[in-house]
């Protein structure tokens, strides 16, 4: 019973935070709401019996990926100019179309959910089970994902290296 109450509180927080994340003109405020939303989703994962997924949500999404987002925004230093631009982009004519389409999806989702009954998950999934299934039946997907990450790593190294070389050349030219 208590779990259901917690679930609805976390779900409300997640929904509200996500809406705020979309509508804030200030990028940093929007990001903080997005972080709150991710934390609320982590609580939901924990409640429906996936503690490992909840922990990873906090460590990876809220703790690492969002930090990099904030990092990039700090580098850009948008300030008041960025806020003005964001406000322009938040005109009804821009968000009305996607809103109607997602409303249709929402109605569909509600209809589907109302037809299924009973809890979706029953037993808590331990970290060991996650590991076994990742390196058992899904090992191919894990390997492909790791190759994709390696390609991204090599690509970003290449791009950064070119700039470094250019800087060095300029320095030598100056001397």
């Amino acid at each position: 019973m208590l779990e259901i109450v917690f679930f609805y509180i976390a779900a409300t927080v997640a929904l509200m935070a996500t809406v705020m994340a979309m509508t804030r003109p200030n990028a940093i405020h929007a990001l903080i709401y997005l972080i709150v939303s991710l934390l609320a989703v982590a609580v939901i994962f924990f409640l429906i019996g996936a503690p490992f997924a909840a922990a990873l949500e906090i460590v990876i999404y809220a703790g690492a990926i969002m930090v990099l987002f904030v990092f990039v925004i700090m580098m850009l230093n948008l300030g008041e100019k960025g806020n003005k631009q964001e406000r322009q982009w938040l005109q009804p004519s821009i968000w009305a179309g996607p809103a109607i389409l997602s409303a249709i999806l929402l109605i569909e989702l509600i209809l589907v959910i109302s037809q299924t009954n009973g809890p979706v998950s029953v037993a808590a999934v331990s970290a060991k089970q996650v590991g076994l299934s990742l390196f058992g039946p899904y090992v191919l997907a894990v390997e492909i994902a790791s190759m994709l990450l390696l390609a991204g790593l090599v690509g970003s190294f290449h791009l950064g290296r070119r700039y470094l070389d250019r800087d060095n050349l300029e320095k030598q030219g100056g001397q």
């Binding site: 940093i28 922990a55 904030v70």
Partner: peptide, 26 residues
């Protein structure tokens, strides 16, 4: 005593980064 205790600790230390980051930015 949760079975993800170690990950919980890592998650909390990673959230502490925001304090320094947002403090510097704000």
């Amino acid at each position: 005593d949760v079975n993800i205790g170690l990950l919980f600790f890592l998650g909390m230390t990673s959230l502490a980064v925001y304090s320094v980051l947002l403090g510097g930015l704000a």
